[in-house]
Design a protein around this nucleic acid. Structure first.
Lengths: 346, 346
DNA sequence: ATGAAAGCGCTAACAC
DNA sequence: GTGTTAGCGCTTTCAT
């Protein structure tokens, strides 16, 4: 540890000039070249580095943006965070990681804590929202961008994707491959993603008739194990109906569970049963067979949110914005389809 | 947005007491119950929430700790970050995510930037270190904990694991299963992990004789694709030597590449070729076959580092500490072994 | 137990 | 272009 940190006032004294000139010289704003030279030298000599706490207090800016989610370890959120960091960092903003906690109330509390002014803005992806939370966000003391559902009409900047439409893309892809009995493997319905994806599947298959398309199973959780258990039920119909020839899973982990259940029964994937996942995770890309998956553009959503934030931080006072990131089907081995909106090699 | 934020001085006026008493009452330190009551009421009424920038300036504490790595998206670092967050958050510390950049110099620069006092401490896991960086860290103006190699002798708190020993565990596990020709699939040797793992393999197999054990291949990168390419060379010996009956891979992604290469050749895993990975990633747990892998305890290392940091932050001035987290072999399907230090179901 | 006042390090009026 | 000065919001001596 070097002696004691030099402050601006010490640099000023060392250079034999005023405090104000020192500050100006260091920021290169309205100081003569000679002054800049002189102050720089003094600063270097003392090993000066500006103290951001003083700066923050004075400027009422922390140069920090918070990113808050319920589960920081979730790959989807990791991608968002990485993207947000990449956008913000070049603009001199640091990223603070926060946890929303599991409930709406804990999320509200987090938004309220923004009153302490420890960040200049918040990007948050809440698991669920209610009117109270929406109101809390609208009246937050710093800009907030929500990743989740469209909230611009309630005056909140937001970024969303269309997971329901993404499920639709998967269904149509499978239909295009000639699959007739398409089943849906979803996670719990008391979650926002669970509900949206269910809606998407219903919308895409609602009018399909009774050829097996529309069969559903709910996993207890968005995991491989839960997906395996639920997919077994799907592949062993109790009611005498025909076995599905395709399974649309609500995420990649469930899809892997489905592939396993198929193999247990000696069924080939995609030959006997085609399987699609969602989220385009690395795990799905690396799995065998590699998973056809609907990307929800986590990184893009993060980037979009960060850019909205930058605009607000720059003083943009326009009406609340909404950015929608379209889902993209990535066709891989688990359906081995050669048609569809998007193609991609393994 | 509510009118204008209330400050402590306004709460004081509203309560009709002094600024000092207000501060004390809000912190519950040395104030009469009556005073506390009165101030609380005033604060609630004005919707007061303390401004941390003022607090930070005055107390010379930011209540923030930085976590810096080269690649925030890497699952290993994500686990560390999550663990660090979990330890620090209950103590009132926020976690700021930083990037070290790819080089030693950029890491040095980051350490130097600590002079700005935007965090109270830094947990960093540098890709590589040199004497200059070590010196920079030692003389940093805030506590620094390094996750990587032991640095307590140079006066730096550190947490490390023994990846070399972990490779040794994998080798002995395979030997215990009767495998005789154990090959090593490593990533680039100009990386710290690459070198350490190579050392571990050499140490574990050095005296094994010339039965094929000790064959090595280097992948260009720690990825599935690079692993696949390198594993092909391993399984098609050009020099007429016998094909390996086991491959120790330097991480899980390389291991998956090895499994694929084996399958391409119609070889069964683990029957014909047993494969081990390292890092115990979700991807390895979920893969088929699930991967026997050496856990390097990322979460534990994160926790240990966070606890060391908490001690320093609490004013602990003892000599530099070092915590070593032992590697643990997790036996799964890719070796299907029933012996070994640790067992775990899929 | 309470109040008065200093001051953390910085930037930005304002005057020259 | 440079200097003087106020003050951001807070905690903490120091006196009472």
């Amino acid at each position: 540890m070097t002696s004691t940190r030099a402050t601006l006032i010490e640099v000023a004294r060392h250079a034999g000039v005023s405090l104000a000139s020192t500050s100006r010289a260091l920021h290169g704003t309205g100081a003569s070249p000679a002054m800049v030279e002189r102050v720089r030298a003094a600063a270097d000599e003392l090993g000066y580095s500006p103290d951001v706490t003083g700066r923050s207090l004075r400027m009422k800016k922390t140069f920090q943006v918070a990113f808050a989610v319920a589960d920081i370890g979730n790959p989807v959120y990791v991608e968002m965070m990485t993207a947000i960091h990449e956008v913000l960092e070049p603009h001199g903003f640091r990223v603070v990681v926060l946890s929303t906690g599991p409930t709406v109330d804990s999320t509200s509390e987090l938004v309220r804590s923004l009153g302490s002014r420890f960040v200049d803005g918040l990007v948050v992806s809440p698991l669920r929202t209610d009117d109270a939370l929406v109101e809390e966000i609208r009246s937050a003391p710093v800009p907030v961008v929500v990743i989740g559902r469209a909230l611009d009409e309630q005056g909140i900047d937001s970024v969303s994707t269309d997971s329901a439409g993404g499920i639709g893309q998967a269904v149509r892809h499978l239909q295009g491959l000639g699959r007739r009995r398409i089943a849906f493997l979803n996670g719990p319905l008391d979650t926002t993603p669970g509900r949206a994806r269910q809606r998407g599947f219903d919308a895409a298959t609602g009018r399909e008739g009774s050829d097996g398309t529309g069969t559903r199973a709910l996993a207890d959780d968005f995991t491989v194990a839960a997906g395996l258990a639920a997919a077994r039920r799907l592949l062993d119909p109790q009611d005498g109906s025909a076995r599905p020839d395709a399974i649309v899973a609500a995420n990649d982990l469930l899809a892997i569970g489905a592939v396993r259940a198929a193999r247990e029964r000696g069924l080939g994937v995609p030959t006997d049963v085609a399987v699609t996942g969602m989220d385009d995770t690395e795990i799905g890309r690396v799995y065998e067979p590699s998973l056809t998956s609907v990307s929800l553009g986590s990184a893009e959503r993060g980037r979009a949110a960060a850019r909205l934030m930058l605009d607000r931080l720059a003083g943009d006072a326009a009406a609340a914005q909404h950015v929608a990131i379209g889902p993209r089907l990535l066709v891989r081995e688990s359906t081995a389809g050669t048609t569809g909106p998007t193609k991609e090699g393994a």
